[in-house]
Design a protein around this nucleic acid. Structure first.
Length: 605
RNA sequence: GCCGAGGUAGCUCAAUGGCAGAGCAUCGGUUUUGUAAACCGACGGUUGUGGGUUCGACUCCCACCCUCGGCUCCA
């Protein structure tokens, strides 16, 4: 629902290209007009903001005398249905010179609309257009249905606060979100998808699957339970393997650091308000929000030679960020996070190769997960260090590497870090919200601020470049995303419990335990369900916990030294020799394949 | 931080100013079972926290904490 709303708002008119997408956009934009019309009936003094079509629906922003209630939404919906039944034509009612439009909108008491007209660029031409349906007329570029009767199935979903023009210094308006589709069946399906998404919510699954919990005693910081930690470690092992293969060396740096370091790095100036600052006797210290300055201190512990470079450090220590309370969200946005952080110190002529390496490591590390990330090139922000020439060059180099790699990407104008442009990788959660995972940054600023150098072949001193990257991003966020991607049904290599052992009767407990020992010796995470329950109940429990593989052990298995496996998908077999079973599972876990079918959690729910 | 909504047993939910309840989970007992829920019983609560109104508050009012949906932010 947050997908580039403002961008689409800007383009509401241009949405009239061709095809089904544009038909839907026109319909949703028309629905927004109908919502505004209904709102004016309910609140004649309502001031209108903008009302664009967005992914799956539309919204309209209003300044109202009081907060909207669910009952208001019903009434607004009723008003829209009345317009729908009346089949009112959408007409291009008039084109006015800017000054006349401003006068008209002022008369109508619509200051936000006046502001829109005043801020339209000259390139938009000397006049602005108005569109009308029934008694409602709105400033608009157009792009509507023929009449309100053509609106398909729709529903108003919720309200939310939204700053006028997305600026937190401007008034907060009430935004009404709605969804609209051609048919009732499509609307029902959309609403069903929203319900299904709630079942995949990592906050619910994290509790149901006993992965992690949150507590008011430490808000916005997960407590990792044994199962969550097993998942974490599987991810960490994989990350370490990728780094080790690529010639990284792991370091570990302190959490508590005196502020002088952050002053040198520039973080104190830019992020002081978002740091946890502590009293340290005669000094002020902060909990680290970043690892980079500390990696730099390690670099500076001896005189470096061009022969030492590139020097690749990885660091899995925990970072602390005092995020504003309203931005916190389960595992997606926490106040303590652990990155698979990487810093490469290299010569300027090695930067291209190091960025190539970083991009290839992103591909390698993401390969087992089976999702398609989206890349963005984030360019120079307003608040930044360094000259325009530097940014030009740094952005250009990242862009070249992306183009060369063939990874598709979009440009995130002004989205860079204060010291460097970034390549960011985004993945969607269950609700379709995008979250940043990997980030790659080529940094020329910190080396300068810390006066880093190395001895060059000609005997002179040169300044190294630091390439920063994290591939999972934060483990917390990655675990949240993975949980939602797989709906808790993790592939074998990640599953906290890989094998649930189900003894049929108490007399099989000893054999069950010997099976567990054999699996554990092969590096597999297995648990025996020793409860005095029926086999069916134990299978149901394992199935609900989305354990990928269950094995039933009874008299026949015990005699044969075998197990009778059942997969999460429902597939089962009997009397498989234990060594054969272990060899098969070990190979599958080692290959990190998506098996058994991810997300297939069987019936129930 | 801002706008709005919410918080009752471990979980899902009931009780609208008058004795806080159900199912599941947990625990005890019985049952010893061949691929998604055996049976019987018991325990479980300062209704997020602190104030206030009232004869009486889960219910009404205020403050705070936490969570959720957005907005803004995200080194």
């Amino acid at each position: 629902m947050t997908i580039d709303a403002d961008e689409i708002a800007e383009d509401a008119g241009a949405a009239l290209a061709s095809g089904q997408e544009n038909h839907l956009a026109a319909m949703r934009h028309s629905a927004a007009h109908m919502l505004a019309s209904a709102m004016l009936e309910l609140f004649p003094d309502a001031r209108l903001g903008i009302g664009p079509a967005i992914k799956d629906g539309f919204y309209y922003d209003f300044d109202l005398p009081r907060p909207l209630t669910p009952a208001d939404l019903e009434q607004l919906e009723a008003g829209m249905r009345a317009q729908q039944a009346a089949a009112l034509a959408f007409e291009h009612s008039q084109d006015l010179a800017r000054a006349d439009a401003v006068r008209l909108l002022e008369e109508r008491g619509q200051p936000f609309k006046v502001e829109i007209v005043n801020d339209l660029p000259e390139s938009e031409g000397p006049t602005v257009s108005f569109y009308r349906h029934g008694g409602f007329e709105d400033l608009c570029r157009g792009g509507h249905l023929g009449s309100t009767g053509e609106l398909g199935a729709f529903k108003l979903l919720n309200t939310a606060g939204a700053y006028w023009r997305g600026d937190e210094t401007r008034p907060m308006l009430q935004r009404v979100y709605g969804t609209a589709w051609d048919t009732q069946a499509e609307l029902d399906q959309h609403l069903w998808r929203l319900e299904e998404a709630k079942k995949r919510d990592h906050r619910k699954l994290g509790r149901d699957l006993d992965l992690f919990s949150f507590h008011p005693e430490s808000p916005a910081a997960p407590f990792l339970h044994p199962k969550g930690m097993a998942l974490w470690r599987a991810l960490e092992d994989w990350s370490r393997q990728v780094r080790t293969d690529a010639g990284f060396h792991e370091v570990r740096t302190p959490s508590l650091v005196r502020k002088e370091l952050w002053e040198t790095s520039g973080h104190w100036g830019n992020y002081q308000d978002n740091m946890f600052v502590l009293d340290d006797y005669d000094h002020v210290s902060g909990l680290k929000p970043m690892n980079c300055p500390e990696e730099i201190l390690i670099y500076r512990t001896r005189a470096r030679s061009y022969r030492d470079l590139p020097m690749r450090f990885s660091d899995y220590s925990t970072l602390f960020r005092k995020e504003r309370t309203g931005v916190l969200a389960g595992m997606f946005r926490v106040r303590q996070l652990t990155q698979d952080d990487s810093h490469v110190f290299c010569r300027d002529d090695q930067v291209d190769d190091e960025i190539r390496l970083a991009l290839s490591l992103v591909r390698t590390q993401y390969a087992p997960f089976g999702f398609e990330p989206r890349a963005k090139l984030a360019t120079r922000p307003d608040k930044r260090l360094g000259s325009d020439e530097f940014w030009e060059r740094a952005e250009g180099r990242l862009k070249e590497r992306l183009d060369e790699d063939g990874m598709s990407y979009e440009i995130d104008e002004g989205g860079g870090a204060f010291y460097a442009p970034k390549i960011d990788i985004f993945i969607e959660d269950a609700l379709g919200r995008e979250w940043q995972m990997a980030t790659i940054q080529a940094d020329y600023q910190l080396p300068q601020r810390f006066d880093l150098e190395y001895r060059a072949p000609d005997g002179g001193f040169e300044r190294p470049v630091v390439i920063h990257y994290a591939i999972y991003g934060s483990f917390e966020r990655f675990i949240g995303i993975l949980t939602e991607q797989y709906a808790g049904a993790f592939p074998l290599w990640l599953a906290p419990t890989q094998v649930a052992i189900v003894p049929i009767a108490d007399r099989h407990l000893e054999y069950a335990e010997s099976v567990r020992t054999a699996l554990a010796a092969a590096g597999l995470r297995a648990e025996v369900d020793a409860r005095s329950e029926r086999m069916q109940a134990k299978l149901r429990e394992a199935q609900e916990q989305k354990v990928p593989v269950m094995v039933v052990v009874g008299d026949r298995d015990q005699e044969a030294g075998a197990v009778s496996p059942r997969l999460r998908t429902g597939e089962s077999s009997q009397g498989v020799p234990l060594d054969e079973f272990i060899a098969d599972l070990t190979a599958r876990a080692a290959s990190r394949e998506l098996w058994p079918a991810a997300g297939a959690a069987g019936p129930a729910e």
